[in-house]
């Protein structure tokens, strides 16, 4: 059975690494998603094409294979070296950034055109229009699909254990090798991931309520046990729904 020593030395640090990887790759995905999503609505076709190409390529990429590629192929081919965790965060951030850019694009496209026209009538520059009119209204629409994507990302962080980052799943694997008693370990792991997903969802709901209040929309009522997933019209992972 699980010794407290093991718990302190591997499992809790593993939980911490999982949280770190989730947070860092979510931040990277977020930073990538906004420019790419906005550029996909640009008026020049070449800009739209390049941003669209980023989306299509990384949406078609398997994040695990990409992670292996960054961790094991890039260092010898280009004679550089980095931490495995860096490779994991980079791979997750880049692929989930592509999914998230679709959310940004879809939410921007769903802002009523009259809002954009009003901005033009008031002689706003395109950037002012984006910052003052379109993004503030699109933002509350983005949060529920971002929530779903964040849960997918949290699940995706378990992949970093395969490139030797000592996250929760890695600790579980080690423990299985040491004790050969896998049932309680993997049950605990699954429950922990579920609890993390649940907590993240609650946090995102708060964020959504706050964002909706700011643009004068009534927040949707959801009970404490309203499910882990948000219901949203835009499905980033499958790329269905939302305004085209």
């Amino acid at each position: 059975m699980m010794s407290s020593e093991f718990l302190g030395n591997w499992f809790l640090p593993g939980l911490w690494i999982t949280l770190q990887v989730t947070f860092l790759s979510a931040a990277l995905a977020f930073v990538i998603a906004f420019p790419i999503g906005v550029l996909r609505t640009h008026r020049l076709w070449i800009v739209r094409f390049l941003a669209g190409a980023y989306f299509e390529i990384f949406r078609s990429t398997s994040s695990l294979v990409f992670m292996y590629w960054i961790a094991f192929t890039v260092p010898p081919v280009f004679n550089i070296s980095f931490q495995p965790m860096f490779a994991g965060v980079l791979a997750l951030g880049i692929t989930y950034g592509a999914y998230a850019s679709e959310i940004v694009r879809g939410a921007l496209a769903a802002v009523p055109p009259a809002q954009r026209e009003a901005g033009i009538a008031l002689n706003f520059t395109p950037f002012q229009r984006l910052r003052r009119i379109e993004l503030p209204q699109a933002w509350p629409e983005m949060i529920p699909p971002f929530n779903n994507l964040l849960i997918e990302l949290l699940k995706g962080t378990s992949l970093v254990s395969l490139i030797a980052v000592a996250d929760m799943t890695f600790a579980g694997d080690l423990l299985r090798l040491v004790t050969n008693d896998s049932a309680p370990i993997y049950t605990l792991l699954l429950v922990l991931y579920f609890v993390l997903a649940f907590v993240l969802t609650r946090g995102m709901r708060l964020l959504e309520r706050h964002a909706k209040k700011r643009v004068g929309q009534a927040p949707e009522k959801t009970g404490l046990f309203g499910g882990v997933r948000a219901t949203s019209s835009i499905d980033a992972v499958t790329g269905t729904g939302g305004a085209k």
Binding site: I151, L154, K155, G156, T157, S158, L159, S161, L162, T169, G172, D173, R176, S182, Y186, L189, L190, Y193, F194, A197, F198, V228, R229
Partner: peptide, 9 residues
Amino acid sequence: STPLLVQLF
């Protein structure tokens, strides 16, 4: 809500 990888294990 839980990772496929852990489910496979």
